[in-house]
Design a protein around this nucleic acid. Sequence first.
DNA 1: CTGTTAGCGCGTTCAG
DNA 2: CTGAACGCGCTAACAG
Lengths: 359, 359
Amino acid sequence: MGTERRSRGTHEAALTIRDVAERAEVSVATVSRVLAGNYPVAAKTRQRVMRAVRELNYVVNTHARALAGVRTETVAFVLNDVRGPSFSAAAYGVEREANQRGRLCLICTTEGDQERELAFMQLMREQQASAVILIGGVRDDEQYRERYTEIAQGLHAVGSRLVLCGRPSLGADVPATTVEYDNEGGAYAITTNLLANGHRRILYLGGMLEHTTSVGRLLGYHRALADFGVAPDPTLIEHGEFTRVSGYERTRAWLQQGAGRFTAIFAETDMVAAGALAALEDAGVRVPDDISLVGYDDIELASDLRPRLTTVHVPYEELGRTAVRLAIDLKEGRSREGDQHVVLGTHVVVRQSVARLHH
Amino acid sequence: MGTERRSRGTHEAALTIRDVAERAEVSVATVSRVLAGNYPVAAKTRQRVMRAVRELNYVVNTHARALAGVRTETVAFVLNDVRGPSFSAAAYGVEREANQRGRLCLICTTEGDQERELAFMQLMREQQASAVILIGGVRDDEQYRERYTEIAQGLHAVGSRLVLCGRPSLGADVPATTVEYDNEGGAYAITTNLLANGHRRILYLGGMLEHTTSVGRLLGYHRALADFGVAPDPTLIEHGEFTRVSGYERTRAWLQQGAGRFTAIFAETDMVAAGALAALEDAGVRVPDDISLVGYDDIELASDLRPRLTTVHVPYEELGRTAVRLAIDLKEGRSREGDQHVVLGTHVVVRQSVARLHH
DNA sequence: CTGTTAGCGCGTTCAG
DNA sequence: CTGAACGCGCTAACAG
């Protein structure tokens, strides 16, 4: 008797610490102490308790535990799409680092819908997530910023750390840590590579200037030109989507109308470069013999293309790992409070898509 | 007076439903009702409450809510690595479907470590996740199976549905739903395509037979051969890793020692096919003119290769979506209890890597 | 329509 | 070293 506390034989009958206590013939407090292992308990008692736990196949209830003050740390992260090679690398970094540090990992895909992002952040407040990591760009407007700020402050209030990856902080009243990588430096370096190989007229297949990423990369391009004393030709600078088809279409158009106006192409993304390469190929233009081509991101595709693409390596996985690390360090006081800002380095990976220009 | 309940001015001062109640001058029950929206409340009162909520920037505490019986539904899923194109597509499917249905999405990357998988499942028990989705193969042994079974039963006991994707159920005493795709059928179809094009000696670059995936695909290959009255040559069947380098190395070895013994290659994976293609290219062998090549999976890479790869399309995203759908339907009683088993279809995508064999 | 109150499962004093 | 009892924040009866 005493073992039949539950009447209904339905499953869903989650057992509690009391079931364990009864079976081990101790109090619930003792079971709690054994499980937490943070308090002296007689060896024999402990054995009995552990045996009961095993026999009952018992596990604690996170929610009850959280309510009593011991929370399971959780890292949440938000991105546009897990399928992109760069995003998935970042996701991998976040997950691995969180896992290694014993954190659970919550994920949300937004497909660029900022409403969804805000809703998720709100949810994370409810969940008391220890960190919320936002990856990728933002479109900023007055109304958005207001709601965003409020939610961000709410997160802060429940002790949740907000980490922004590759996105600007929207105002000083938003408590957040920022991790990014050096867009400008990478673009500078690879443009320099082109210039050093004799190229002067470089078609720039860029993204929209709403993206801070694009702004940074374009800046690097300009600085390199300036350092080589080359006057930038604004008509060689294009803005468009970061997709393969955009790369294809834009390159095709240029090939038809502006062929001969450039000797190299700087695609702001490997994906765009892949499209450009296809267009060049279809037009019978050889890379790098006729036209040189470089990309940015160093996704796996870059080494699958023929010729293998010279590009800028971006440490996406490290980006994710760093985000988690910063958030945790901050929470655990190992890092000082206040806005943090980390910039990860980028570097050129030289492969076969750039030729030295003779004359 | 009465508004200063909290003494310490530190943040971390999460507000409760009582703060809202006080401010709105109503009882906590009323606040709860307004927030839940499942009970009549006077319009005026509701307004006051909502105003207080907004002014205080309050959100409920998931844990307290869960403890009181209203849980936030959560879908957890476990895979080896989010970076692989097929896995990330499945992950995307899971996340999208979960999100659309208002579920939170927990993720765990195991890198093939089954310990981590078990530990995560255990964690999900503690979290009372509504569904746990396991994607990818298992290495089965006695000891593993025992622990796995116990945890699986524990999950079931807290009302958590276990869904296995592309992995066999480890025994009838494990309550689980299975979703897979037709490995055998796809392999049959694409082998048939090769045969119909006149190929008879088809080098099979397979995976290890511990993978059920490999077993299924090899079976399809054999059945197609049988249907065309072609006696299988066991020496043309290879087992190795599912990596690009493995594809490269194995193909190179064959080119050196067994050239002329086959007119086509069936790589069990697009990744392996990519390696094979590189080896063929390096050896000056033209695809498909000299040797035809097919893959399996239809990852993005397949259309990036030159020639574009003829392969078998696997609905990875749908796999993830279906897993979530089944779990939820089951939980909500929209589907009958008991072991479910869904098999998704696969189909051949004809591109440019297969040539008709004359003679 | 609204308020009071009893748990939900666990951690944690405070007494033994 | 162990047990009894309170409270975490919220929901759901049960009374008004």
